[in-house]
Design a protein around this nucleic acid. Structure first.
Length: 481
RNA sequence: GGUCCCGUCGUCUAACGGUUAGGACACCAGGUUUUCAUCCUGGCAACAGGGGUUCGACUCCCCUCGGGAUCACCA
């Protein structure tokens, strides 16, 4: 019988989630869903100073927006709860006591200033800071007011020098990184280093998927697993997503955007997920476009890239547009709710569908909807600069253009405004006037839309309708006199 | 400085030790007899460097160089 796959995502409530963070969540989620396992959300709020109010809600919202549903979590509970670390303090104390009883934990009597002095001393000597080199000769009994430190056995790993990481492969371990790190801080809260190990064990997590920043700490964790007699989970270390330029990891500090912002700007969750998944992962073929269900089917930890991948907004834009184009209009309609221009508020949904049909192939994300569709819903004022800035029209005399448009108007007035008839008439006008399409059609386009570009002219006019078009052409003629 | 990880077009990447090193994004050119977009065609562009091992190396080993992570009472 194989073990149930249980993965987790453990953000600390210090703000929003950016693409890098949520990609880690995505991979953990994929692994769980692929194996009919569970995906757990745990909030790691052991540093009260850094806590940002509202973060947990924000994080939950972000996961929800992308469809990364979890089976257990702070808001929905579960049999291994609570799922917020600050509510699990007694559990950590219990485990800490085990360590003390075994002689594997001791009180640190130094003040923070004294520890800092040790550190500076080591730095000056160009050697890594290791607390275990500064151990107090007679550590006092731990009364909860001092930090509790782990008594590490660094030598153990000299015998067993490699460790397998599901992504990074075999890692070698230097004893120099194993230290007597702090288990419980003087404020009574555990450190991440301690709490996550306890929680993962108690919650029966099978796979720990996390970012590269923890790579160097793994030896410490191995040491602690051993001391606690905990069977270690599969560890998978993800490379970082790099910011533009590729020389630093994506971070809020450097302007990494909140994933929820992408959702608010109208990127499809499916596109966002496709983008994040293929940033550092591939299925071994040349396939680039994946649906969520395909991802669940094909995902594997061992095909995650070991090197960091640069965040490429261009690629996201392309992928977003691609997914929009692939989505049927009726489904797309639901997604566009809230993105239409205000002027479209009271418009018949049927009309909106027609508009959407016309603009969907040029849409990258839904926030572009207003600027692309405004003229379908309201009469924009005549803007003569559109003619002056048009590279075909600017060469022409305004009277000539006036005459052209007038002639067009006379023909279009006879039209029933079906696409077929409009196309026919437009082509006839081309012959009659002897003008190039770039000239004549640009002129009519500007008159009927007051925009430099639009979907196909006949299509656009058909959707706009005869009354609207004729009125707009009349207005244009008026202001060109 | 110690420890550790990584290194294929500008970017994301593919390639049982045997390929003209492939695809995608971006960019450029042309086409789809109107614009923008889509779509199609074509183009530009990479194995960090040096040594080995091998009949043969992007692929295995070593060194160098380059990039990154980490060395907190943060996670």
């Amino acid at each position: 019988m194989t073990q149930t796959i249980r993965t987790r995502f453990c953000p600390s409530p210090t703000g929003y989630l950016h693409v890098g963070g949520i990609r880690t969540a995505l991979f953990a989620w994929l692994l769980a869903r692929q194996n009919n396992g569970q995906f757990i959300l745990r909030i790691e709020d052991t540093d009260q100073k850094r806590e940002v109010a509202g973060s947990t809600d924000h994080i939950i919202k972000s996961l929800h927006a992308l469809g990364l549903d979890y089976d257990e979590g702070p808001d929905i509970g579960g049999k291994y709860g609570p799922y917020t670390q600050s509510e699990r303090l007694d559990i950590y104390k219990k485990w800490a006591q085990k360590l003390i009883d075994k002689g594997r934990a001791y009180a640190d009597p130094y003040t923070p200033e004294e520890v800092r002095a040790f550190r500076e001393e080591d730095q000056k000597a160009k050697r890594p800071f290791l607390y275990r080199n500064h151990i107090h000769k007679e550590p006092p009994l731990w009364d909860g007011s001092q930090p509790l430190r782990f008594k590490s056995y660094p030598k153990i790993y000299e015998m067993d020098e490699t460790f397998e990481d599901a992504v990074m492969g075999k890692l070698s371990i230097g004893t120099e990184t194993i230290d007597d790190f702090i288990l419980i801080k003087s404020d009574g809260y555990p450190t991440y280093n301690f709490a996550h190990i306890i929680d993962d064990a108690e919650m029966e997590i099978s796979h720990v998927i996390r970012g590269q920043e923890f790579l160097a700490s793994i030896p410490n964790y191995l040491n602690l697993y051993d001391a606690l007699d905990i069977k270690r989970p599969v560890i998978a270390t993800m490379p970082h997503i790099l910011g533009l330029g590729g020389n630093k990891k994506l971070s809020k500090r450097d302007g990494a955007k909140d994933v929820l912002d992408y959702v608010r700007e109208g990127y499809l969750p499916e596109a966002l997920i496709n983008f994040m998944a293929t940033l550092g992962w591939n299925d071994g073929t040349e396939k680039e476009i994946f649906s969520v269900s395909e991802l669940i089917k094909d995902f594997s930890l061992n095909r995650i890239q070991k090197s960091g991948a640069q965040f490429d907004e261009q690629r996201l834009l392309w992928m977003s547009g691609y997914h929009i184009r692939e989505t049927p209009v009726d489904k797309l309609m639901k997604c566009t709710e809230g993105f239409w221009p205000d002027e479209a508020q009271d418009t018949d949904p049927k009309y909106k569908i027609q508009v959407l049909e016309l603009v969907k192939e040029r849409l990258k994300f839904f926030a572009e909807l207003p600027e692309l569709t405004m003229f379908f819903f309201t009469d924009l004022p005549v803007d003569l600069s559109l003619i002056q800035n048009n590279k075909q029209l600017k060469k022409y005399d305004i009277h000539h253009l006036h005459m052209l448009l007038k002639q067009s108007k006379e023909s279009l007035e006879q039209s029933d405004f079906t696409v077929a008839d409009l196309t026919l008439r437009l082509n006839q006008l081309l012959e009659q006037t002897g003008e190039k399409p770039g000239v004549l059609f640009s002129l009519i386009r500007i008159a009927t839309t007051q925009s430099p570009s639009s979907p196909g002219l006949a299509d656009t006019m058909a959707v706009l309708g005869k009354d609207r078009c004729m009125e707009r052409i009349a207005n244009q003629l008026e202001s060109m006199k």
